[in-house]
Write a protein that binds this DNA or RNA. Structure first.
Lengths: 340, 340
DNA sequence: CTGTTAGCGCGTTCAG
DNA sequence: CTGAACGCGCTAACAG
């Protein structure tokens, strides 16, 4: 009986000499004779009784499992894990547990994860969508399992979303560089399949056009996915002539790779450089890296709050929250163009 | 019926015109007449049927939930999240999902998390234990739920553990500093309640004693928990006389805080400094930070492998795996003492 | 091979 | 207020 903690309500009832239903009532805090309550609690403690969540949710009218699903790009990525932590914090108070998984940007893996989460009958789902059309996501939404997309737009219409103002953030950085006198600005972004990469690129294009900056295809790198790829792209960009006098990199790893390239070329004190998304130790590099910061923790918190509201019965129209970005001037973005 | 995807096996059986058990067999891949199989699969697809994991595990003989629990210090910490990812990767192939939570080093929170995990009847648990005596952990072990402790020794005897060679790693760093000519070596470590902090301190004490280094209480900071606290401790340590000529910091955040202190004092090129545990961008600081690296991913992988073996029936004696550390010379640890 | 039946552990009727 | 009976969705044992 004591193997795998399998003391059941029946065991407790037998030991306490009461009916099964009485145990259930005590465990669930329904009014019961104080004397019996004591006997039941004693028996439960003695047997090491633990209520079985699966059986509970199977029987309950609302079928709640007190578990939510979280699909991230990669649980080990700093952005993802900060978001994870914020979601966890919001859920803990409600007694919700988080099933987390990594999609690695692969639509197939995203679908698999969502599938097993639905199989587990999670109460709701927070997902950083790859962006590919996703039948499982659509099915979850259609079947009434609350879904919130974070960081990126939803591939399925009518789903709540929490995103950052990617376009405005990049545009602001470009305007700041322009104000410093920069007219030749380079740009490096991630896979075009990613909504955030497209948005940030769009912000760059709009701002440079509006300001009348020169634009050259060699100054724009797209579909650059790793730090090493960014290093190579930026090295190439700054060894052609004319080269940009400033650079905007649209993702944290790309920012690091770009900095490595600039250091390699000896240009890190000569070229203005602004990265999208803050990262640890950005302030300890030489020069410190100026960034367009988003707040992953806040994004996770807001997403979780929306999800919790849905669990509480909120059936209003889909929300689309856009959080502002914040420019953090640390030095690398404040380098003037040559001759000024 | 289509609300919350609640098509049941009964529905599928009715639509396909077969018995309930036949549907179960088809879903579970047991041999069934190919003609019926087709009818069942069609019906299932048509209804958007999804098997209910909770009900399944409730009825199955082995009661497996295909879910494991993971209790970390903080899912957002780079060490923790790298470990998390490795555990996830090892589990994915087996179709296991991971319920992750953060203890924040609080024994009470650890107990709560373990409690709800046991309530969910997880198949096994991987935990970075706070170190405090933990009835829930003991109960899990006693009841036959496989438990593996990672990074730190288990508070409960007989539990599998995967740890790094903390003592040897620090001792090696101290010997390397000694070989460079350093005789006055400072040391900063985390909370004494943490097993790793004690082990690393022990390694420091043993190595300095063995090498006949001078030892002064002012050169050893213990119970230093945050980067800011480390900054203050190190600033104090190097503004007294005589000050150490070298420094070992026993945790990644402490290493960062210490570096800030050395930069503040203008000593970052004058004092040798070695940190325990590698961290992103350590190689991009000036000078690059030499570290005693452990491999959180490998620790997670090994822990998961042991857990999976237990799930496969391995009931041998408790394993105690100690993984080696690796010294990475980047520059900060190779600074000689003044006058050499 | 297939269908029927009995529970897994629990919450929720419904009589007492 | 309490206890007995039923069934949530499913698998295991049995009978055809």
């Amino acid at each position: 009986m004591s193997d795998r903690g399998r003391a059941t309500m029946k065991d407790v009832a037998a030991l306490a000499g009461v009916g099964l239903a009485t145990v259930s009532r005590v465990i669930n805090g329904v009014a019961v004779d104080p004397h019996l309550t004591g006997r039941v609690l004693d028996a439960a403690r003695q047997l090491g009784y633990r209520r079985d969540t699966a059986a509970t949710s199977l029987r309950r009218a609302d079928r709640r499992t007190s578990t939510i699903g979280l699909v991230l790009q990669d649980v080990a990525n700093p952005f993802s894990s900060a978001l994870h932590r914020a979601v966890e914090d919001a859920c803990v108070r409600r007694g919700l547990l988080v099933l987390a998984g990594s999609s690695d940007e692969e639509p197939e893996r995203e679908r698999e994860l969502l599938g097993v989460l639905l199989t587990r009958r999670v109460d709701g789902i927070v997902v950083v969508p790859t962006g590919a059309p996703d039948g499982e996501l659509a099915a979850a939404h259609r079947d009434g399992t609350p879904v919130v997309c974070v960081d990126r737009a939803s591939p399925v219409p009518g789903v709540d979303t929490v995103t950052a103002d990617n376009r405005g953030g990049v545009a602001g950085a470009v305007r700041a560089l322009h104000a410093l006198g920069h007219r030749r600005i380079g740009f490096v972004a991630d896979h075009t399949t990613l909504w955030t990469a497209r948005e940030r690129h769009q912000g760059f294009v709009e701002a440079t056009a509006e300001l009348g900056c020169r634009a050259r295809p060699e100054w724009v790198g797209r579909d650059v996915h790793t730090a090493e790829a960014a290093r190579q792209a930026v090295t190439g960009m700054f060894t052609t002539s004319p080269a940009p006098t400033a650079l905007v990199t649209a993702q944290n790893w790309l920012t690091v790779g770009a900095r490595r390239a600039l250091v390699g070329l000896g240009l890190h004190h000569a070229v203005a450089h602004i990265g999208f998304d803050d990262f640890p130790l950005a302030d300890m590099l030489d020069p410190p890296v100026s960034v367009i910061a988003q707040d992953p923790a806040e994004m996770g918190r807001r997403a979780a709050l929306i999800l919790l509201a849905r669990l509480d019965g909120d059936d209003g129209p889909a929300r689309a929250v856009t959080l502002p970005t914040r420019y953090i001037a640390r030095g690398s973005g404040e380098i003037p163009p040559p001759g000024r």
